[in-house]
């Protein structure tokens, strides 16, 4: 071929597109959804900044995306992003974190960012296991899963991250699986424009580590089809009994609240009031 065809999203990358994830990993689908949403938003890519923590999901923006990317310490992605947002309030800041970053080591940062309602977009790639370190149990691993650290089955109940976000006061909460990539793209576009803390949870496949638990090792297709069957929309789920929703993944946009005080605006207001008092 004389002119090799380039991907429509190639312009957002630093050099060649080269993801080092395992075959069939959901990270690439999430990365594509984020970039398509940014493409749809019409905002210049230089106005975005990405903050990512440690874990497989940390490698979605870093070092691939051709804009400001901070790859920070484990669990502290939101803490760094809060500082960045307060220093540069006009920037659109997207945090990509995994379930370990969000619920285990960074649990407190997460709930306090929800409570403060700071204008960040948080994208949590929930693969329900610690994938990078070898398949240990995570706070989101389902009940009775046999992982490397729970060979007889986990007896702990998992976290429902979206419910935590709603309870902690996040003003935009949504959950999709990687099978709903088109809906995910629209939701991320909405979340970027939402004034306040927006939390998008994505149930993503980990064919290598979590596939082993489900006895579908290295079979990303089977895991995706499993999500297709198990996911149920919020509107439908409301009509069903609790027993019918066992093993189902409720997907959809749970909360969208506006007119809630936002942290950077509040701090600006406070600063102006203090300045006026000084001048008097």
């Amino acid at each position: 071929m004389v002119n090799p065809v380039t991907h429509n999203l190639k312009k957002y990358f630093r050099g060649e597109i080269n993801y080092t994830t395992c075959p069939g990993c959901g990270n690439g689908i999430v990365a594509q959804a984020i970039l398509w949403a940014i493409d749809d938003s019409g905002i210049d890519f230089d106005n975005y900044a990405f903050v990512s923590g440690i874990g497989c999901s940390g490698w979605i923006p870093s070092p691939a995306f051709n804009t400001d990317v901070l790859h920070v310490t484990h669990g502290r992605a939101i803490a760094f992003a809060t500082g960045l947002k307060l220093a540069a309030p006009n920037m659109k800041i997207i945090v990509t974190a995994g379930d370990g970053d969000t619920s285990a080591i960074g649990g407190n940062h997460f709930i306090h960012a929800c409570r403060r309602n700071i204008d960040l977009t948080m994208i949590c790639v929930n693969n329900q296991i610690y994938g990078m370190t070898g398949g240990q149990i995570a706070p989101t691993t389902p009940y009775l899963s046999k992982t490397t650290t729970t060979p007889y089955g986990s007896v702990e109940r998992p976290f429902d991250l979206s419910k935590i976000a709603i309870a902690a006061g996040a003003t935009f909460v949504a959950r999709w699986t990687t099978f709903q990539a088109r809906q995910l793209r629209k939701t991320i576009a909405k979340a970027i424009l939402h004034p306040g803390f927006s939390f998008v949870e994505i149930i993503s496949q980990c064919p290598v580590q979590y596939g082993k638990v489900l006895k579908k090792r290295n079979d990303a297709v089977a895991m995706l089809m499993d999500y297709k069957e198990r996911s149920i929309n919020l509107k439908k789920a409301r009509e069903l009994q609790k027993s019918e929703l066992k093993d189902k993944i409720i997907v959809g946009e749970f909360v969208e609240e506006r007119n809630v005080p936002e942290l950077t605006q509040e701090i600006n207001r406070l600063r102006e009031e203090a300045l006026q008092k000084c001048q008097r």
Binding site: V5, H7, Y19, T21, G28, Q32, R182, A220, L224
Partner: peptide, 12 residues
């Protein structure tokens, strides 16, 4: 294209 995790498929 949308589901490819490695950006290997392009539909034009």
């Amino acid at each position: 294209m949308i589901y490819c995790p490695d950006f290997a498929v392009v539909v034009k």
